[in-house]
Design a protein around this nucleic acid. Structure first.
Length: 433
RNA sequence: GCCGUCGUAGCUCAGUGGUAGAGCACUCGGCUGUUAACCGAGCGGUCGCCGGUUCGAAUCCGGUCGACGGCGCCA
């Protein structure tokens, strides 16, 4: 190996012990004891201790290094030694330190409130915790592309600016479009249903926007949505497509980010390692019965709240599919079950702590049924003419789902709050920085 | 939308009617093996904002703004 700059991780992996290295990065912490300075040098791969002795540097340079504040950027040349006194068993004895850019007083110290970290999110991204999470996030995005493309699905983009709603009840962010009111998209789905009859099976990863004042640990107003639409799929095939994606994501994160995952959540690794299909599948009615058996007061026809979700997911050691919900509590576009027209062919995939990870359904293709359901939801069907057209010209059975990517990350990392699953979270009370 | 908690130094907090406090950070001094170093000194405030009660309000009362937490709704 012969290169100019080494990674901190390589030093900690014993690749350069006894040798000279060149490192560059940021001062994570610094301690000076007079004629010697201890620096913890951070780069994107890790943190290593650097010792700077007064004898080794020119006097002026030593005084400069001594006065550097946390987060100053530097280049270090020195020798790697194995030393039990160093935090990770290895340290770099500096021969030369070049100051790239001294830092002002860093606003984030050891004690910090949630609010302070959110105000300084642009600086908090340098933390080990955020670095680990964002690495896992990157892997999750890659895994989703990989999964769908390996199955022959093509990537299709819908507009972000749109004139119509999609999810009944969900509120839209209005946008002033040259004096007309349009909205930020809530979902890719309706446009996907137009594209599917030409392109075939498609998927996307795109932001979705929900103007709901949901002050919960599971909601963002702007979140990243992985959505898929497949031709000829029935509900069972759609379940397999959802299960396959979740399993593939978990596998990839274990492969590529095991260390990052362990840094955040030690128990997560074992849970994910043991995760395999098939996930349990129960109907809405069976879920109601289970909850009643557990002593909960649930009324048939009600959607599950947080207490019901918690109870239900606690009964299984894997994510659980709940199928065949009553049509009244689900979106207008879901197809009714021919065997029981009060139910829809669709499902939610639920996991502990997070709740719903995926919501999917077979799509209704009958124009009259769609119009009737739209009216029930208080929508004006004339706003949906182009969508209804997709059913008027040789529609075929099809199905799809949406997966909340931040919720997947929250689940994988066992995060207390979904806002840590995204670099700059947007919540009802926060849109800065 | 509903319920709750909290706003005091750059940060984290104490102070519940009588002169505004601590730890950390920062500055200066000391120290060649520190691990959130340590020791000494210094700097640092319109107690969120508006109004009221009182001889006197960070403290009591009313309002307001903001943040956080929980519920509902959803992915």
């Amino acid at each position: 190996m012969n290169k100019d700059w080494m990674d901190v991780k390589e030093v900690l992996d014993d690749k350069y012990t006894g040798k000279k290295v060149n490192l560059r990065g940021w001062i994570h912490r610094t301690r000076n004891i007079g004629n010697m300075v201890f620096l913890n040098l951070r780069d994107p791969t890790g943190i290593v201790q650097v010792t700077v002795a007064k004898d080794e540097l020119e006097e002026d340079r030593f005084e400069e290094v001594k006065s550097l504040l946390i987060e100053s950027s530097i280049k270090v040349t020195g020798q790697v030694v194995s030393d039990q006194r160093a935090p990770d068993g290895f340290e770099v004895r500096a021969r030369d330190v070049k100051i790239v850019h001294p830092a002002n007083v860093f606003p984030i110290q050891e004690d910090h409130s949630v609010e302070h970290l959110l105000e300084n999110r642009h600086l908090w991204l340098r933390s080990t915790r955020m670095r680990n999470i964002l690495s896992i996030r990157s892997t999750v995005f890659g895994a989703i592309h990989e999964f769908f493309r390996s199955k022959g699905y093509k990537e299709f983009q819908s507009p972000i600016i749109t004139p119509l709603a999609c999810e009944g009840g969900a509120t839209l962010f209005p946008v002033d479009y040259f004096d007309e009111e349009v909205y930020l998209t809530q979902s890719w789905q309706l446009y996907a249903e137009a594209a599917i009859f030409g392109l075939g099976n498609i998927y996307t990863i795109a932001p979705s926007f929900r103007a709901e004042k949901s002050k919960t640990p599971r909601h963002l107003t702007e979140f990243w949505h992985a959505e898929v639409e497949g031709l000829w799929l029935d509900n069972d095939e759609l379940i397999e497509l959802g299960e396959g994606l979740v399993l593939h994501i978990a596998k990839k994160v274990l492969e590529d980010d095991r260390q990052e995952l362990e840094n955040i959540y030690k128990d997560g690794v074992e849970y994910l390692e043991n995760l395999e299909g098939p996930f349990p599948r129960i109907t809405y009615e069976e879920a109601i019965d289970l909850l009643k058996k557990e002593g909960m007061e649930v009324i048939y026809g009600d959607d599950f709240g947080v207490p019901e979700e918690k109870k239900l997911t606690s009964l299984f050691d894997k994510p659980v599919f709940v199928t065949h919900y009553p049509k009244e509590i689900k979106a207008f576009y879901m197809k009714r079950d021919e065997n029981d027209p009060t139910k829809v062919l669709g499902y939610d995939l639920m996991v502990p702590h997070v709740g719903e990870l995926i919501g999917g359904s077979v799509r209704e293709t009958d124009v009259d049924s769609l119009i009737a359901r739209l009216k029930e939801e208080g929508e004006d069907p004339s706003n949906y003419e182009w969508f209804l057209d997709t059913r008027r010209y040789g529609s075929v059975p099809h199905a799809g789902y949406g997966l909340g990517i931040e919720r997947v990350i929250m689940w994988l990392c066992n995060l207390d709050h979904i806002r840590d699953a995204i670099p700059f979270p947007r919540t009802p009370n926060r849109y800065r920085p």
